[in-house]
């Protein structure tokens, strides 16, 4: 069961979000203030943190939590205007949702964050004819049950797509997160890698089904 530490001072929103997330299958521990959060964070997989808290403000609490448990993702909820929050808040937060948020959006963001830290709802993701097993790090072609072996960079690129589902990633974004260096305009390395990746995972690399090209913008993997 995936455990969420939820810190929110507003009782109405708090009870509603707790209920909603529990219905979606999360184990939610709800704190009304930042007190005790540092202890509770150790027993959590993800923190949903409201910016406006009585006593310590959400930013301070978030920074302390990040210090205590750097590997636990933090999702900020804010009712303040994005103007000042975004700059301060995102320095430690892994994601950011502005009120009034939609519960589906919140759940989707939580799901993405959990997947990035390796705590997906299911360990298996099905994409067209292939099945990705996240706990075993295998990619199986379900047509013949054979494992698809990827090179280091191909695997990194593919996992980057898996961790950012349904998101359109520009070639700069992919290159910089996989290679860890500044993308140079006109560099064809990424295109070459994606072509080889497609040859391995797509049924027909000429008209790809899994890694979709968004012309002029980038690539996307829908789930």
């Amino acid at each position: 069961m995936r455990r969420i530490l939820y810190i929110e001072d507003d009782l109405e929103i708090g009870s509603w979000v707790q209920e909603d997330l529990e219905q979606r299958g999360f184990n939610v521990k709800w704190l009304k203030t930042g007190e005790g959060a540092e202890k509770a964070v150790i027993h959590s997989d993800l923190v949903v943190l409201d910016v406006m808290l009585p006593g310590l403000d959400g930013f301070t609490v978030g920074q302390r939590l990040k210090k205590e448990a750097p590997q636990i993702p933090i999702l900020m909820l804010s009712a303040r205007t994005a103007v000042d929050d975004k700059l301060q808040g995102l320095q430690f937060a892994d994601d950011y949702v502005t009120k009034p948020f939609h519960p589906d959006e919140l759940a989707a963001r939580i799901e993405v964050l959990l997947r990035r830290s390796g705590l997906s709802a299911s360990n298996e993701i099905k994409l067209a004819h292939i099945c990705v097993n996240l706990s075993e790090n295998t990619i199986i072609d379900q047509r013949n049950g054979e494992e698809i072996i990827l090179t280091g960079k191909q695997y990194q690129i593919f996992m980057h797509f898996i961790k950012h589902p349904n998101q359109i990633l520009t070639k700069e974004q992919i290159y910089e997160s996989v290679w860890g260096e500044q993308y140079m305009e006109g560099d064809k390395t990424l295109m070459v890698h994606i072509r080889y990746l497609r040859e391995k995972i797509e049924k027909n690399p000429g008209s790809p089904e899994i890694i979709e090209t968004i012309r002029g913008i980038g690539y996307r993997v829908k789930q």
């Binding site: 507003d10 929103i13 406006m52 205007t81 000042d84 009034p100 939609h102």
Partner: peptide, 24 residues
Amino acid sequence: RQLIANLSHDLRTPLTTIRGHAFS
């Protein structure tokens, strides 16, 4: 700045609640 932040908070919090109830 504080006023604006508070105002934003005071307006958005009930909106969130309304959205929550509409969703329920």
